[in-house]
C-alpha cells in the first residue's frame, strides 16, 4: 500500500462512520423531523467522504469530475427531499417532539 491508499482508506472508513451515524439517528431520534436531520446531513457527509476517498483512486480526471458531479447531484436532491418531506409532514400536522 502506498500513502494515497492509506488516505483513501481513512476517508472511506470515515464515510462509513457517518453512514452509520445517519442510520443510528434514523432509528433513535424521536420524530420524523429530527430523523430527517440525521439522515440528510450525516449521509451527505458520508457520501462526500467516500467520494473523496474514491476520487484519489480514480483512473482519470474525467472520472474524478463525474464522482464530484454525482455528489453535487445528491446534495441538491438531499436538500430538496428533506424540505419536501418536512413540509409534507408539517402540512399534515405530524407533531414535532419537544423535550
Amino acid at each position: 500500500m502506498i500513502l494515497i491508499d492509506y488516505i483513501s482508506t481513512i476517508l472511506l472508513l470515515a464515510g462509513a462512520i457517518f453512514f452509520l451515524a445517519g442510520t443510528l439517528g434514523l432509528l433513535r431520534f424521536p420524530d420524523v423531523y429530527t430523523r430527517l436531520h440525521a439522515l440528510t446531513k450525516a449521509d451527505n457527509v458520508g457520501l462526500g467522504l467516500m467520494v473523496a476517498g474514491l476520487a484519489l483512486q480514480a483512473e482519470s480526471l474525467a472520472a474524478i469530475g463525474k464522482l464530484l458531479l454525482i455528489w453535487a447531484l445528491v446534495l441538491l436532491a438531499g436538500g430538496s427531499v428533506a424540505h419536501l418531506v418536512a413540509s409534507g409532514a408539517l402540512k399534515r400536522g405530524v407533531p414535532w417532539w419537544k423535550r
Binding site: L47, M50, L54, G78, G88
Partner: peptide, 29 residues
C-alpha cells in the same frame, strides 16, 4: 426497520432519502 415500522407515513417517506445516498455510495464502491 424505521421505514417499515413508521410510526407515521412521514417516516416511510424517509426511504427516499435513505436510498438516495446509500445506493449511490454502494454503486460507486
Amino acid at each position: 426497520w424505521r421505514v417499515l415500522h413508521g410510526p407515521t407515513a412521514a417516516d416511510r417517506m424517509l426511504a427516499a432519502q435513505l436510498f438516495g445516498t446509500t445506493a449511490v455510495a454502494v454503486l460507486l464502491l
